[in-house]
Design a binder for these strands. Structure first.
Lengths: 127, 127
DNA sequence: ACAACTTATATGACACGTCATTGAATGACA
DNA sequence: TGTCATTCAATGACGTGTCATATAAGTTGT
């Protein structure tokens, strides 16, 4: 009944899902237990950390992650409350916000990134 | 500062995430609007539909999806309440449950599967 | 046959993401 | 300059997932 090419598509999709779930789960649990931040929080830290120029507005970040604007706003809010990031309003356009890591944020990111990369290596390695 | 091999890992991961988010989002929205079921619900229907033998206990399904046992239990509960699936207790081991599609469930699955495969094709196609 | 352990599923508290909406600032244009 | 539309971010209501636990049934060893 099922077309073989459909079967193959479905399997490809399930494989992506499985990889995603397992990897995301492992990352989330590790970051949570060792650094008390979730994977989403780390991902924002990571994006802010790697953005060299000052043009690090939330809007730009939104273009670099599949996260919703709403989700981002809440994550950034948590990071702010945790003292890992700071939001400064931008003079050019007062609707925008500039994000930057605090010292604590930078330190935590540096450590967490090591763990993060290591787990990616474990999980994404071709078996 | 960042090792190039790490960069590559990170990009591989982000690519998986993006594919996963976009595809899952598209599937979820389409199934929700056209058939009033979420992606997770569809996935359970799909698994039950493709399990030929009667040995379709929740436990087995759990082995075929990255979903949590808890999550599965709730999804199945919703499907049951929606009249798309039925849980019959198993005589051999009364802790287990057999799942099977109702007629409505089978009909809905048949239609939804077409949409599902089509969207997978759109989203997973190599660009 | 009785404890102690293990396994299959359900459930409650809680956290997070989504959608829709709001508030505020900007742009466009007559 | 005043109106209308657009853009950036925040928020509240709501659904669904997760963890820890509960419930119930099966298993093992004595």
């Amino acid at each position: 009944m099922a077309k073989p090419q459909d079967q193959q598509l479905v399997e490809q999709w399930r494989s992506i899902q499985t990889t995603y779930f397992h990897t995301a789960g492992a990352l989330d649990r590790a970051l949570e237990s060792k650094f008390s931040i979730g994977l989403t929080e780390f991902e924002i830290l990571d994006l802010v950390a790697e953005s060299t120029d000052a043009a690090c507005r939330m809007k730009q970040l939104g273009e670099r992650t599949p996260m919703t604007q709403s989700a981002m706003s809440k994550v950034v809010d948590r990071l702010d409350k945790a003292g890992l990031i700071s939001r400064k309003s931008c003079e050019d356009d007062r609707r925008s916000l500039f994000l930057e890591l605090t010292d604590a944020g930078r330190a935590l990111h540096r450590q967490a990134a090591v763990e993060h990369r290591a787990l990616l290596r474990e999980n994404l390695a071709k078996d």
